[in-house]
Design a protein around this nucleic acid. Structure first.
Lengths: 183, 183, 183, 183
DNA sequence: TATGAATGAGGGTTCATTCAT
DNA sequence: CATGAATGAACCCTCATTCAT
């Protein structure tokens, strides 16, 4: 357990800024953007990016994990405040919207399925799947979701829906998938 | 209009073989496979690949367009032989399966939405959309598909469903989406 | 056993030229010379160097192994044509001179001792040691070399003597070490 | 002549500690260890290292000069307490052992011969050579060392013997060289 | 004075494309 | 036409050094 001392204020600001810029760029242009370019747009040297995120993958993983945590938090909120069916479908909608607005996220998901379990937590995806599993389970038990779909099916749908739509309204898509899943 | 003279027999054979091998490789390993590797596995020199397909993208576009033509042909067949609703849903299922078994196709679709209209026919995607449009139209008129989904929505769903599932059974997914679309 | 087809004539020429230039540069300036610089002085692109020698280490290993083979051949010649004692001492002198005129060689030897056995043949060094072993053995049996030195001692001396002298006459050094080794 | 004011007590302590740690690391791992790593293990910031030793080379030169001074002191002790021959050979043995136990020292010597006279005192090597010269002179006059070796030859041997042996017993090597040098 | 974050040139390597053979 | 060697820009990463805190 290497317990780092807390970052200096300016370093923390810098790190946050790089993260913000990188998230933005990955979301709009995908994962193939050079680290150089991220550094340039963030107004820092390439070394600064590397210092905070030793590897390009580290950078992306940090961003992705953040996204996943946000979504997980929303899942938890839905689970608490809504009845089983609503919680499930609200979460589904949230995921679809998140994926549709983040190209890097979609690109990663497209490849993440490949080597399942390679990375410890598949860059935070496991977090999401856990939530999805319990939401699905409860929704099915409550009779809100058809019983013949498995977690894996929902996950695939989830991944599929994250695929970048052309920026168009997602509500019809969500509606269709939701209706299809309803018992 | 540079109207090429027809290729020599051996050149045509070569071209076809490269296409075949490249399609196979792109399908299983994605678009990032080096051109070198394709040439090597096809048993030709890299120059031969470049001669027939000046750009890596040209190579992929040719393959993708082929896929699209196959699918379009199936759409036409469905349109002829089936009633409107069945034609639409069979086509949808065909597309989902096609996408799930071709990683390169999925990878490309994930990015194709980006610059709509850049390439004349979005690498053959327009072909598919045309078919989809008429199938959807007829299915809606026949009352088989809900009236509130637009072509664009179906296209997005189509693209989404092409996203590679982890090799798992696709039928539940097709079922869900189909049910969701049903009137 | 990937049995490469023989290189094309021009490629072989190029490869040989790169090797020649690299050997020269490594000999005079050591191993830290950038691959870029080697390519530049050889009048080729960096990719050409990488094609023939995928790794910088490959390049060096090829050169070093060549050196070792030359020296081994000389050892064999001495073993055949000279009596045991003379063979041993002539070989020793040959090695000292070789090392003193090749900085890269010396630099490598300085680090090779570190991880013995890491690389299959320690870049050709084993070849030399084999020869040395039999020459030493025969010379000791013939009473030409003192019996209390082990192969390892001679190897260390060998490595030591390869250390670049400042370009000065090596004969006195050879004389001293030779006399010291004599029975 | 910028005559620095004496360092503050804590600064002096810091400097000494860095030197100690760096010497240890250079000795066991060679010169390529990052300055970062030295700072880390010394428990100071990288800036502190740079403040005391503006350049990595400065750091090494300081250490090396220290080593040289230690060895020179031993040379002086031998010169005082022993007869000419013994003094010379004891000094030689001391040098061989020093070199064999300090990888950085050996690495440097391998390259130091390159640009003779570049640095004012070749990082303290001149100090050693002075001692060696007088020891050699006296030993030769006393008939303990053969007359046909020049200072330069002994220096080269000295440098050569500093080359890292693989941690094996050095006595045979010392014996060989000593015997070779004896009149 | 000490810190460690920031810098950015430079390293080795890959690969789409070109072109002499 | 086919070949595959050559190209060199671009990639990610390291690390000695600088400088704001």
């Amino acid at each position: 357990m290497t317990n780092q001392p807390p970052l200096r204020a300016d370093a923390r600001r810098n790190r946050a800024h790089v993260l913000e810029v990188a998230a933005q760029i990955f979301a709009t242009e995908g994962l193939s953007v050079p680290v150089h370019e991220i550094a340039r747009r963030a107004g820092v040297g390439t070394g600064t990016v590397s210092r905070h995120f030793p590897t390009k993958e580290d950078l992306f993983a940090t961003i992705l994990r953040g996204r996943m945590e946000e979504l997980s938090a929303r899942a938890d909120a839905f689970a608490e405040q809504e009845e089983p069916g609503a919680a499930f479908f609200l979460f589904l909608a949230a995921i679809v919207h998140a994926g549709a607005s983040d190209r890097g996220l979609a690109e990663h998901l497209a490849t993440a399925a490949e080597d399942p379990g390679t990375r410890p937590d598949r860059m935070g995806l496991d977090l999401l799947c856990d939530r999805m599993e319990s939401l699905l389970d409860r929704a099915q038990k409550a009779g809100a979701v058809r019983a013949d779909v498995a977690l894996a099916d929902v996950q695939t749908l989830m991944a599929a829906c994250m695929t970048r739509g052309e920026g168009r309204a997602l509500d019809p898509i969500v509606a269709v998938v939701s209706d299809g899943l309803r018992a």
